[in-house]
Write a protein that binds this DNA or RNA. Structure first.
Length: 515
RNA sequence: CGGGGCGUGGCGCAGCUCGGUAGCGCGCCUGCUUUGGGAGCAGGAGGUCCCGGGUUCAAAUCCCGGCGCCCCGACCA
């Protein structure tokens, strides 16, 4: 059985609880309650940024590193990332992709080969100029993304249309020198997945771009319970070097948008820059058409900001490193033996059914303290097992999202799995409801500005397509066009006029202030 | 880079105006009693007061100069 290091004696295997109607943790000393100051959480409504940081610290997801802008991902945070990786990796494999690994260091000259690309990334790169005690002949950049090195290699590997498509993915770290950083959301170094594909036709490459956008969306909804809007970005917002960028945009609890995943149709831009040509069936030479796409550890930040509350993290069951915490309760040694025996049986049954369970049998820690700890860490379900429960062949099942009820031991696996599934569904439904509650359609210029200066949210409005209008709105409201929404998200009737200039609307756009 | 805040045991802070033994809460260690929503008592460990100069008999405290971190804004996944 898996155990956790206890702060007192015992081992820990855990379970969460409903965040009952008890008040949130209070300041030390108040109400006779005490808690470690480092675990104190600023109320979300008081200061969202502080709340976000506090949740991360409380749940032990990450910590600051000695280097500005960098973060340490702690085991509990990394476990969430690993679950994300597992789900996404399986989806990539199902759609025919293979993993590979390209190096961290890229010749500086490579970046310069694609004009927009270098313009976009040069200011953000870290450059290595010395190695082995000597000045390097050509500086090496720490990859801010890997298009350049990958196309340099593809031009070696691809000769014929028979070599296409190439469907690659890599899990890697990258470095982008950011002015301002935030845990998970924007750090100097971050972990991500970058897919790179090369195709014989433009159509096929764009189909691939959209396929992956759909994969991302499905992952965000089904695993993260975070429902994004999807659609293309405007020219101003697209990836440096792409022909078109598509994105998933999710709405956080402070009503700011988070770009959660992007998928780019690159046309032949990189193929031309790196001379990645192939021979067609009829003997001609053509450049490959390509796509690239990525999601990063930023998703962990999105997960936190989508669901969590003033008690701490709320983690959707499918991505919860610990789905169930079992907390035994006893008074005497005799009770302890019986209760532990029952708790271990429950834990074993759940584990055998594929549930991630922790049994928290740490000695000398009161049950209430354990509840708070697991709640802070976002564990979706807690099972409490005390002498009374043993006698009645039951356990108390408490949900992180609220509610506590007895469950018969005989049906524990079904009850727990049912609860996990319900919590997963409820979180998605709640997030979708919140998104719609904070979306306004057919906004006027005044409404848009008012919304952005106030409550925030997604503002749907008409857009003539001109960069001037896009810039005008941004200057007036600090909101950017997050996406030109895909059909299923569009308004009916479609907006008739541009929010900014009042001319005929060619498109519908969704504005929001964004991370 | 601009604006704000902050650097004192692991964490959160007080002390600084008015220089003179470095304190409090939580956490940690030991023991006993506890355990159905953050346990109690007793004992104990733990600090280059961010760094460097200066003033002074004496600096966490006063002066000068650095550095670092966090938050807010301009750039970005």
């Amino acid at each position: 059985m898996r155990t956790w290091p206890g702060r007192r004696a015992g081992r820990v295997r855990e379970a969460p609880t409903g965040r009952r109607e008890c008040p949130p943790p209070t300041e030390s000393g108040q109400d006779g309650l005490r808690m470690n100051d480092e675990l104190r959480i600023t109320p979300r409504s008081a200061d969202f940024a502080a709340w976000y940081n506090d949740v991360i610290m409380r749940a032990q997801l990450a910590d600051y590193s000695p280097v500005r802008g960098c973060m340490v991902i702690r085991p509990h945070g990394y476990a969430i990332w690993e679950l994300m990786q597992g789900a996404l990796d399986a989806m990539f494999k199902e759609t025919g992709h293979q993993n590979a690994y390209f190096p961290l260091l890229i010749p500086q000259g490579f970046l310069a080969k694609e004009a927009e690309h270098v313009e976009g990334f040069a200011p953000q790169t870290a450059v290595v100029t010395r190695g082995g005690g000597k000045e390097l002949e050509e500086p090496l950049v720490v990859r801010p993304t890997s298009e350049t090195i990958i196309y340099a290699m593809l031009s070696k590997w691809v000769q014929s249309y028979r070599d296409l498509p190439v469907l690659l993915n890599q899990w890697a770290n990258i470095v982008r020198w950011e002015m301002r950083t935030r845990l998970f959301l924007r750090t100097t170094e971050f972990l991500w997945q970058e897919g790179h594909t090369a195709h014989a036709t433009s159509h096929e490459a764009e189909e691939e771009t959209l396929l992956i956008l759909g994969v991302y969306r499905r992952f965000m909804e089904e695993w993260m319970a975070m429902p994004p809007l999807t659609g293309p970005k405007t020219e101003a917002e697209k990836f440096a070097g792409a022909v078109r960028t598509y994105a998933c945009e999710a709405l956080m609890q402070d009503n700011k948008a988070l770009q959660a995943g992007t998928s780019h149709f690159l046309g032949q831009n990189f193929a031309k820059a790196f001379d990645t040509q192939y021979q067609t069936a009829d003997g001609a030479l053509d450049y490959v058409w390509s796509s690239s796409w990525g999601v990063s550890t930023r998703l962990v930040g999105g997960l936190i900001m989508t669901h969590s509350d003033d008690v701490g993290l709320i983690c959707p069951p499918r991505l919860a490193p610990i789905q169930v915490a079992v907390v035994p309760i006893w008074r005497s040694d005799a009770e302890k033996a019986a209760v532990l025996d029952s708790a271990e049986q429950l834990a074993r049954a759940l584990r055998e059914a594929g549930t991630r369970v922790a049994l928290d049998d740490r000695d000398g820690m009161k049950p209430g303290a354990k509840y708070y700890e697991w709640e802070g860490k976002g564990v979706p379900v807690r099972l409490e097992v005390g002498p009374r429960d043993v006698k009645q062949q039951q356990a108390m099942l408490a949900r992180r999202t609220g509610g506590k009820a007895p469950v018969a031991v005989a049906g524990i696996v079904e009850a727990v799995q049912g609860a996990l599934a319900e919590i997963q569904d409820d979180l998605l439904a709640a997030a979708r409801q919140r998104r719609e509650d904070h979306s306004i359609r057919g906004v006027t210029k005044e409404q848009l500005i008012e919304l952005m200066e106030g409550a925030g949210g997604f503002a749907y409005g008409g857009y003539c397509g001109s960069p001037e209008c896009e810039a005008g709105v941004q200057q007036a409201s600090k909101a950017t066009i997050r996406v030109l929404p895909d059909e299923e998200f569009r308004s009916d009737p479609a907006p008739a006029t541009c929010v900014w200039c009042g001319k005929r609307a060619e498109l519908e756009a969704v504005w929001a202030r964004a991370y």
